[in-house]
Computed example of a mutant assay.
Amino acid sequence: MSWSRSAERPFARFLLRRTGIGVAQLGILLVLVFGLALLMPGDAADVQNSDVFGAEQRAANRELLGLDIAPAQRFLDWLGNAATGDFGTSYANGEPVAELIAGPLLVSGLLAVLALALLLPLVVLAGFAAGLHPGSWLDRAVTTVSIAVDSVPDFVLAVLLVGWLALDLGLLPATFIGADLETVLRRPEYLVLPLAVIVARVAAPLVRLVRAGVVDVLEQPYIAQARRLGVRRRSLLLRHIAPNALAPAMQELGRTGDGLLSGVLIVEAVFVVPGIASELIGAIGNRDEPVILAIVAVTGTIAIGINLLIDLAGQRMVPCSADGVGE
């Protein structure tokens, strides 16, 4: 479909507006996280060697770490440096924050990418299989399973799968304890249970949404007209049913992107995956402000970026109608 200049201008305005909203959301998120970090008892200087350091040593350590600077100024300094790609230095071990979180981000990114690669075809296939045969045993089975999975929290589903597949049957590793990225790449069975939990929880509502979209489209008059005109089944599915049925799911996928990211973090905590969630938990325990803010900035940017891409795809996706039914 060709786009005129008049059509491109609203799209460009939409892009600029959504980008601006995303930047504002990220800024508010960072301010809230920094404020909550300040409310935690103690700071990095108190946590480090708190049993052996006296008051003077803690004061000296606080000055060395830069904690004697006013919190607002400290946050603005970090924000200005982060805008140039410098996330600062960890309070806990003195390493550059960017290097510290790079490895865990790769692990979390691997989980997220694999989960998304499994999620999309599963949602489309299951949703269409149920929606094309409403009321059939297949439709009832898909709907029942999706509702059952959707009603179980992530951590409960993880515990159930660990108890059954890892402990009772001994088929899969129960946790990632002792495993690193190299081990995971060499032994992909470590990924099975975490991916099963992430995909199951995110796919469950999307499958029902796609199924409902397919059923609704099949009841439209232009579908009946296309069938009377002898439109081939493949063309009917790809050109008329799929665009209309998947349009609502595309919008929901934007919100699901956040759920996918949070699901990865929850699963990492349950399975002790050496990902960004474990790094964040450690940073909170150490009151490591630069690491906390860097992780929130990166994951927040990813979540906002996913939402932006889905919104842009929704703007570009124009559902088919009765026009061109005979094509």
Rank of each mutant, 00 (worst) to 15 (best):
A117R: 00
C320W: 05
I69G: 06
L165C: 11
A322I: 10
A130G: 02
I241F: 02
E279K: 04
L237V: 13
A203I: 05
N307E: 13
W3C: 11
L100H: 07
G85T: 04
M317S: 13
T299P: 08
D180K: 04
G88L: 14
A92H: 11
F87S: 11
A12H: 03
A203L: 04
R227A: 13
V52E: 15
A242Q: 11
A174N: 08
D43V: 04
G213W: 13
G326W: 13
R239C: 06
A224D: 15
R140K: 09
D311E: 09
N307M: 08
L191A: 00
N93H: 07
R208W: 10
G27T: 02
R228N: 14
T19Q: 07
S4V: 12
F128N: 12
T175L: 05
E327L: 14
L236Q: 15
V156L: 11
L118R: 06
F53E: 09
S151K: 01
A92F: 03
V159Y: 05
A60S: 11
T301P: 06
L206S: 07
L237W: 07
I292H: 00
V23C: 10
L236F: 05
P153I: 01
V231H: 11
W164P: 14
L185H: 00
W137I: 04
N81R: 15
D168R: 10
L193D: 00
S146R: 04
A70R: 06
A37I: 02
L29E: 15
P274R: 01
W164E: 15
T299F: 07
D154L: 06
A269G: 11
A212W: 11
F53Q: 11
V210F: 05
L106Y: 01
T143E: 09
W164M: 12
G54W: 01
G42F: 12
L76Y: 06
A200P: 03
A37Y: 03
A7W: 08
I177V: 12
P121L: 01
I304F: 04
A158N: 05
A204K: 08
F128C: 12
A141L: 14
S136R: 14
P134K: 15
A200I: 03
A44Y: 07
P205F: 05
I21Y: 08
V264Q: 07
G324K: 15
V23P: 15
G35A: 10
A294R: 00
L171Y: 15
D43G: 08
A249C: 09
L116A: 10
A70Y: 02
G170R: 12
S151E: 01
V291A: 01
A129H: 08
V97H: 03
A12Y: 02
G230S: 13
F53H: 10
F128Q: 09
I198G: 06
